[in-house]
Design a protein around this nucleic acid. Structure first.
Lengths: 204, 204
DNA sequence: AGCATCTTTGCACTTTCGGCAAGTTCTGCT
DNA sequence: AGCAGAACTTGCCGAAAGTGCAAAGATGCT
């Protein structure tokens, strides 16, 4: 038990964040004032500001929490498991929510899809997402450090590469023409990473 | 020749950006108003706004331009050269300015160092830098796409991984204790990347 | 020189941002 | 229970940021 206070805080944070996503999807990024978001979540404007520094941060928070969940997932994998196997497993559980391709019984989370789509739609949000990712990197890096016992460059690099991979895969997923399933893109990206990003088509 | 108009614009942009870095180093991020930056560069506040959306963007611009230069450098490498060799070469030329370890005769660029240090010092700027990096990624990805002929995920992934690597190396360079030379960190990072980020210390 | 085009600038206005203090809700302890 | 203190919310206020518009100033072209 985390206490009522903690619980309420978490709920408020999440409510604000979803409200931000919902309103932005409906009206577009520029046409939402943070005042509207606060109202939608039933708190004062000033309280919104106690939780988030900006509209963008509130929207990106959903994605940030997801990455944090992946980091936590990573910690809960068996210690003998090789790092990248564990990362893939954590991703499968917390990132590929209800995506086709595996036997997951999880229902697709429409709200999450809306959020991801938003990031690709509003150019202003791409930057915000990157900013937000930077904030969780440290958290993820710590999970990697604890698991591998490595210090210095390695955990940070893995965290940085990992989060930029997530971002890229999400983007590509939306813009790929013809469309490709998210899990296939993710697999491709991870395969590329773990084989050293080999150059394709070694020129003639 | 780009014409006087273009030239002046470039100069103004750079002047504003350096002014932002200088003042922020001197006074701290919170104690610099964009009005001050504009004054320092000799233009009106309104003109600052025509160039940058925020203080952070102005500061990060120096780093962005550097990454763009690396992308251009990549284009100018011989086409037969393998991608990662070309990337290393471009980095050596445009990133490791005057760093010890090679026979470069280039003088270290103090202003650049100040800028990089700033990014690590002011937490608020880490996010801004990430945002800025997101903006050049497309440009870098295009260079990779042109060189390799690849489309889809690969160029974007390389660009994303590359830019997050730069950021991580810069960070580690500042926080490493004991200090390590920038070029050594960069080499280590690139070696890790091109060998698939193998897990160190395969557990017991 | 003279006209078209782009850039800079000032001005008015809305929104964001952050500190402060009062009011309200939780927590821990007796 | 009941109470003291910590934590959270909120309104208010001033400073700063951000935006649209039109006049004034530069530049490019013929």
């Amino acid at each position: 038990m985390d206490g009522l206070r903690e619980k309420k805080k978490r709920e408020t944070r999440i409510a604000l964040s979803w409200a931000a996503v919902r309103l932005t999807v409906e009206r577009g990024y520029q046409n939402v004032r943070i005042e509207d978001i606060a109202a939608e979540a039933g708190v004062s404007l000033r309280t919104f500001r106690n939780y988030f520094a900006s509209k963008g941060e509130a929207i990106a928070a959903r994605q940030v929490d997801r990455i944090a969940a992946i980091a936590d997932g990573l910690r809960s994998r068996p210690a003998e498991e090789p790092l990248w196997v564990a990362i893939r497993a954590a991703l499968e559980k917390h990132y590929l929510l209800g995506q086709p391709g595996q036997g997951t019984a999880q229902p697709p989370d429409e709200r999450w899809l809306a959020g991801v789509r938003l990031m690709g739609t509003e150019p202003a949000l791409r930057g915000e997402l990157a900013k937000a990712h930077a904030q969780v990197q440290e958290y993820f890096a710590q999970a990697v450090a604890d698991r591998t016992g490595a210090t210095g460059l390695y955990p940070r690099l893995v965290a940085a590469v990992f989060s930029s991979t997530i971002a890229t895969v999400s983007e590509e997923w939306q813009s790929a023409d013809p469309p490709r399933p998210l899990d296939a893109l993710l697999d491709e990206a991870l395969d590329l990473l773990t084989t050293g990003l080999p150059e394709p088509h070694p020129r003639t």
